[in-house]
Design a protein around this nucleic acid. Structure first.
Lengths: 356, 356
DNA sequence: CATAGTATCGTAAACGTTTACGGAGCGCGT
DNA sequence: ACGCGCTCCGTAAACGTTTACGATACTATG
């Protein structure tokens, strides 16, 4: 042994042990609630740790036991997402945390920079072993990230379904069902020319939504008219543009289904510029992400849900796929389609007299 | 045995070294760009690492060199914050990242759970040594967290000023200036009874804003009337409530300064219910956080800024206080008051005829 | 040829934890 | 006395890196 007795490197379990005149192994066991340690000494150790403000260094800890007690939530803060997502992610975060904190798991958010490839970013984060498990958001229709995670054997759950190879856990809003119910409702009111707006079908959401719409039309024996499907951004501006395009059609719709509430603001504005009044001349139905458009006149008919509770569900799905926690969350379904609730407003509250 | 074409899961630098038949030390030096390694072998190492997908384990790395290359952004996702902050944090994140990524620093968000004490949460995160430095947001008027960080010698910068002991770096929106300019503008239009709304003065922001308002009044020789200061939440509902309270006054204001654009929505709604029209019967001025209320009629006069650029500024302030980067960001001022720009609308565009 | 200098690389010691293992003390039954 | 089972604790070996240090081979110089 060639090292001399240098004085305090300031921190560490070693110092705590010296201060207590106990071996470092015992101190560690005491702190971690291991069985073979005298209750008396355990109390002493905990007291001293508290008093000296000792908290185990995470690097050493996770190096040894290969675990960090941290769950990551990956988000891609693309310009567009940021502009339009309101507080979706922060709200989900609240739901996730309410579950994780019960298990002393911390949640951190991993925002992929605008200019970096999400796949590479995730790869880096995974290799660094900074998290034990991951929540993946903004899933693509085909998403390489899932294969990466599966191969790396990192437990994960996705916010939003995907077609990608691995049969992974996810929770998703029931946009399929929303489109369906919206069509049903509008058809019941006599509408047959119903427009729909959604993002590009590369985004799985855009695909699902229009697909649900399409199948609902089929069910009602209504022909699918591609001209009535408008791909637009899920923003106020997108809504304005949707209205604009629809106004140009010679055989326009009598009703429209918007995928985001925010779009309704722009949509209202544009049609009213043309002297068309929502709820009287055209029916409008939407999904409500956040209660932003409360002030719209006439009140928007929309589908809503608790995003917080969706976060709770997603957290439980994730934990049920992690060996260390799965016994507490036994579940058969690892994939959940989260229901939405219809909030009737005035924007579609008129019966279309059968014309033509 | 420098062959074996199959890519098997990569365990660590040791395996990479064996695969290359080079010592582990050399591999490490090659990867980290250290000088004393042959360019030839460096290329081989980098190629092999790329091909086998090797990325250094962060635990081992940071255990050894005491650094993580990660910067944390702490946010308190309280219910109220989430409801009203729009995408403030995600937008700031974008600005921060655009600077950090130039230095190969990753940004993670540390959302303090609703039910946990922010101080304790931060303490835990710091002790775990999961980040090299921190951005602190939602600063309190007096905020123990700064003392904690100063004592732990963790570099940090705050989003929002504070009174706390340590002379720490921060960047803050110029709410003081907004209140000032708003009063000036309104006074120039003939107003003398001007109401203001802000959050509780425990929140430093609430204090600063009203203080600026107060001093501006003083400058114009107008008496400060506590009845015209309404403490309210920075939400649509808060705005509604502000209007409600002001309407009850027998000697009401002719103008009002709202701290958040979102409040204007509720404010408009309430006063219009009473037959009062903004921009004709009462002047309204606000700070615009996000362009949400574009649709308001008449258009809202407000102060805006680029929150993204504020993030950039804050990141630079932080880096300039970190020894490893400070040479790249030499600056004298470690504290920045971020200016806002007036966007004239119609909501205050009328000249008050001198009455009384 | 001897020596010094230089470029490149291997060796091993850290970093702070957890944990497998074994040992000391003790009580108790044979 | 002996063995056995407890309970408690100390020792030391990992975990995956980085890096100080020394070793080796080669080059240049005398």
């Amino acid at each position: 042994m060639a090292h001399g007795g240098k004085t305090r490197p300031m921190k560490g379990i070693r110092q705590l042990a010296e201060h207590l005149d106990i071996s470092i192994g015992t101190v560690s066991r005491a702190l971690n609630g291991k069985p073979d340690v005298n209750e008396e000494t355990r109390k002493r150790v905990l007291a001293a740790a508290e008093q000296l403000g000792y908290v185990a260094n995470q690097s050493g800890r996770s190096l040894r036991q290969g675990t960090t007690n941290v769950i990551g939530l990956m988000i891609q803060s693309s310009r567009e997402t940021v502009e339009n997502s309101d507080n979706f992610f922060l709200t989900v975060t609240g739901g996730l945390q309410s579950v994780f904190s019960r298990h002393k798991l911390d949640l951190i958010m991993l925002p992929c920079p605008h200019d970096e490839d999400p796949y590479e970013y995730l790869k880096r984060m995974v290799a660094r072993r900074i998290v034990d498990a991951l929540i993946i958001s903004e899933t693509q229709r085909v998403d390489k990230r899932f294969d990466l995670l599966a191969k790396a054997k990192i437990p994960f759950a996705a916010l939003g379904r995907s077609l990608s190879g691995t049969q992974h856990p996810w929770a998703d809003l029931d946009f399929d069902g929303v489109a369906n119910a919206a069509v049903d409702r509008l058809v019941a009111h006599g509408h047959r020319r119903i427009a729909v707006s959604a993002p590009s079908s590369d985004i799985n959401l855009g695909f699902i939504f229009v697909d649900g719409y399409r199948r609902a039309l089929e069910r009602h024996g209504i022909d699918y008219d591609p001209a009535l499907v408008i791909r637009a951004k899920s923003s106020e501006q997108g809504g304005y543009q949707v209205a604009d395009e629809l106004l140009r059609l010679e055989n326009g719709p009598t009703a429209v289904i918007l995928i985001y509430e925010l779009m309704a603001i722009g949509f209202y504005r544009r049609v009213m510029e043309a002297g068309i009044i929502p709820g009287r001349d055209i029916a409008v139905v939407s999904f409500r992400e956040a209660p932003r458009a409360k002030f719209l006149q006439p009140a928007l008919t929309c589908f809503r849900t608790s995003v917080h509770d969706l976060g709770v569900e997603l957290a439980e799905i994730l934990l049920s796929s992690m060996p260390a926690y799965s016994h507490e969350y036994p579940r058969k379904a690892r994939q959940t389609v989260w229901p939405l609730e219809l909030i009737p407003g005035e924007s579609d509250a008129f019966q279309l007299t059968v014309k033509k």
